[in-house]
C-alpha cells in the first residue's frame, strides 16, 4: 500500500471507520437475516469495502451515485445513516424508503444516492442521465455508477458507455470486478480478464485499481474525478476485488474453489491491509484502531435497536407514491 499524496490523520481514520462500519453492518445484517429477523434477501459486500470507501471519499455530497443489489457499502460510504438503512432492511417506516424498498432499493436524495437497484446494470444508464443533467445545468457535479463484472455483459452497460462517450459526460463507471456473476466465474461469462478493456470500444479512458487497497482506489479516483470535472468525458474504472460471502446470504457458494475465499481473506483483507499500513507508518496505533471497531460495533447494534423499535409502515403507505 502506498500513499503519494498528503492525507491528514483524521481523514485516514475516517476512511478506516467507514470501512469498519460497512463490514460490521454487513456482518450483523447477515446474522439477523439468518435468524429470520430481516426479510427478503441480502447481498453482502464484505471484502469490497476499499472500493466503496475509496471511490466515495473522492467525490462530494453533491455528486451523484447509483449502485446495485450489493449496495450497502456504497450507501454507507456516501454518508448513509445506518439507522435508516437498517430500518429499511427491516421494512420499517423509519427506513430510507419507508419500508417499501428494502435492501436492494435504498436511495437517499439528500446524499445524491440515486438508488441501489434490483436489475443488474439498471442503474448505469440512470447515472449517465444524472451526469447529462449536471452537464446541461452547468454544474461541476460528477456521477458515479457502481456495478459488477456480470453487469458489464448487459446491453445497458454498453449503451451507457457509448452515449456517455459521445456526449462527453462527467460519469465514472466503476466496475467492482469480484470475479463472479452470481455463480458464474468471470472466465465463463466474458472472454476478457480486465473489464477495463471495454473502454477502448467506446474511446474512453480507463483505470484499473486494486480493489482491496483503499489508497490505490482513493488516489486513482481523485485523479479520475479531476478529469471528469474538467469536462474530459467519462472514465471506466475497474476495481479488482472479491466478495467473501456467497452471492446472497445463505448461498453456500459451492461453485468456488475451496481455498479461494480463504486466500483472499488471509492475504487481501482490505481492512487488515489498511490497518497494517496505518500502523507501519505510525499514523495510528492499535489502540486507536480497536477503538474504531468498538465504536462501530456499537453503532450498528444501536441501528439494530433503532430498527427493532421502529414501527411497521401504516398500510396506507402501500398506496402512496404510485405515479398513477
Amino acid at each position: 500500500m502506498e500513499c503519494k499524496i498528503k492525507i491528514e490523520k483524521g481523514k485516514h481514520l475516517e476512511l478506516l471507520t467507514l470501512m469498519n462500519r460497512i463490514r460490521l453492518f454487513e456482518q450483523i445484517a447477515e446474522e439477523l437475516f439468518l435468524h429470520g429477523e430481516v426479510p427478503g434477501f441480502l447481498h453482502s459486500s464484505i471484502g469490497q469495502e476499499a472500493s466503496a470507501v475509496g471511490v466515495c471519499a473522492a467525490i462530494g455530497i453533491d455528486d451523484y451515485m447509483a449502485t446495485t443489489h450489493r449496495g450497502h457499502g456504497h450507501v454507507v460510504a456516501k454518508g448513509g445513516d445506518v439507522n435508516r438503512m437498517m430500518a429499511e432492511l427491516y421494512g420499517k417506516v423509519t427506513g430510507y424508503c419507508r419500508g417499501k424498498g428494502g435492501s436492494m432499493h435504498i436511495s437517499c436524495r439528500e446524499l445524491g444516492i440515486l438508488g441501489a437497484n434490483g436489475i443488474v446494470a439498471g442503474g448505469i444508464p440512470i447515472t449517465t442521465g444524472a451526469a447529462l443533467s449536471a452537464k446541461m445545468r452547468g454544474t461541476d457535479q460528477v456521477a458515479v455508477s457502481f456495478f459488477g463484472d456480470g453487469a458489464s455483459d448487459e446491453g445497458a452497460f454498453h449503451e451507457s458507455l457509448n452515449i456517455a462517450s459521445i456526449y462527453k459526460l462527467p460519469v465514472l463507471f466503476v466496475c467492482e470486478n469480484n470475479h463472479y456473476a452470481e455463480s458464474n466465474p468471470q472466465a465463463k461469462h466474458q472472454n476478457i480478464k480486465d473489464v477495463a478493456v471495454r473502454a477502448k470500444a467506446y474511446n474512453i479512458d480507463s483505470v484499473i485499481a486494486d480493489g482491496t487497497d483503499i489508497m490505490d482506489v482513493y488516489q486513482k479516483t481523485l485523479t479520475a474525478v479531476e478529469q471528469l470535472r474538467k469536462g474530459n468525458g467519462p472514465i471506466l474504472m475497474e476495481n479488482k476485488c472479491y466478495r467473501w460471502s456467497g452471492h446472497y446470504v445463505g448461498d453456500p457458494a459451492v461453485y468456488r474453489p475451496k481455498d479461494e475465499p480463504l486466500e483472499w481473506k488471509t492475504n487481501r483483507d482490505p481492512i487488515k491491509l489498511y490497518a497494517g499500513f496505518l500502523m507501519e507508518n505510525k499514523i495510528a496505533d492499535s489502540k486507536e484502531l480497536e477503538a474504531i471497531t468498538e465504536q462501530e460495533t456499537k453503532r450498528i447494534w444501536d441501528a439494530v435497536e433503532f430498527a427493532r423499535n421502529s414501527d411497521d409502515p401504516d398500510l396506507t403507505v402501500a398506496m402512496e407514491d404510485v405515479y398513477a
Binding site: P39, G40, E88, G91, K92, C97, G99, K100, G101, G102, H105, D312, P313, L315, V317, A318, M319, V322
Partner: peptide
C-alpha cells in the same frame, strides 16, 4: 392493488 410490490412484509401482504 394497483401498486408496485412493496418490500415490507406487512405491506406486501396488504396489496
Amino acid at each position: 392493488k394497483n401498486t408496485p410490490v412493496p418490500f415490507a412484509p406487512v405491506l406486501e401482504n396488504f396489496v
